[in-house]
Design a protein around this nucleic acid. Structure first.
Lengths: 169, 169
DNA sequence: TTTTATTTATCTGTATACCCCTTTTTAGGG
DNA sequence: CCCTAAAAAGGGGTATACAGATAAATAAAA
């Protein structure tokens, strides 16, 4: 009780309240925490959450261009290029110019990249479980449903439109 | 219906499923979206969410050292130093060596920093409302409760321990 | 076909976030 | 009192995230 952060009240300020009532603060902390758990759980692979997202996107869509990967993984276009460059440098991804559209740059997992992506699935699921662990199963489902609703509704914000699907499938 | 991202299924991969069932993906997107809305709503001030968190922390605790600010705002210690340096450069914060403990570097809002922090409260609340808008009030409360529970339980992860309170108050 | 608009990628610059390591200062133990 | 452990800050390095601008290629319109 005495330790409940929500009890923190304004001090010198006028109407300032605790950060704990700000959705943005909680979302930011949640993100920090998830990244920390993921990195801890997947330390042996040396792969970040964003890199893993890109790799699974390429697993689902081999030979996708950067914009497609960006939409698939919900990552900024500019950033996707950087991430792919790092993965390329580590030999997990190879990139080549598209024959169909010479503006596009096609990316594909190498054999090692493919292998690592599949091997990481277990660690990834462990990280997820550890992250959600504090909540009961029912609350976990509630949280997932609420977050999904939020992301879908606000999808247009930020430079990561997040298609998740394509009509041209 | 046809547009529901959750309907995306595995393709070439073995057991890979959509990113939309991964809590980490949703949290990352939610964070991206919140930052985008905040920056849009507070564009006239040129202040980022993290800078705003630091400024309100200093409003609540004038003359705090960097570690205290870090805990108060839930921000990495190293990062707080960078943020304070930028705010100092813009004349919103002034820093000085502590007289009590010469290891510490004390930070304080300038008059302009104080003024801007207070002026931003309205825009900040608007951004919050816009962010949560897609949900009903009841669901908003549910989401806040669930996120608070998660952050409290996982508080130890990431280098931003987030005190939020002090026994020595 | 020439012009215009759009798309894709790249480059520069800023800001967050965190790691490891070092320096300075303080606090504690012998 | 000295010496060691701990705390605070800083520097260097990596990785995300996005804004703004430019260049190249394609698509659409005149």
């Amino acid at each position: 009780m005495r330790n409940d952060p929500k009890l923190v009240e304004k001090t010198s300020a006028g109407s300032m309240t605790s950060l704990w009532v700000r959705p943005g603060y909680l979302v930011r902390r949640l993100h920090q925490i998830h990244v920390a758990i993921f990195l801890q759980e997947c330390a042996s692979f040396g792969i970040t959450p964003v890199q893993y997202a890109v790799m699974t996107a390429l697993l689902n869509r081999p030979g996708a261009d950067q914009v497609t990967v960006s939409r698939e993984a919900g990552i900024d276009r500019t950033n996707v290029a950087d991430v792919l460059a790092r993965l390329d440098q580590r030999g997990l991804v190879k990139r080549e110019a598209s024959a169909l559209d010479r503006r596009q740059r096609i990316a594909r997992l190498t054999d090692e990249g493919d292998r690592i992506t599949r091997e990481m699935e277990h660690a990834s699921l462990t990280a997820q479980a550890k992250f959600m662990e504090p909540l009961t199963i029912e609350k976990q489902n509630q949280l997932m449903a609420l977050m999904t609703e939020m992301v879908q509704a606000n999808n247009e914000y930020s430079r990561a439109p997040a298609g998740g699907h394509t009509d041209a499938d």
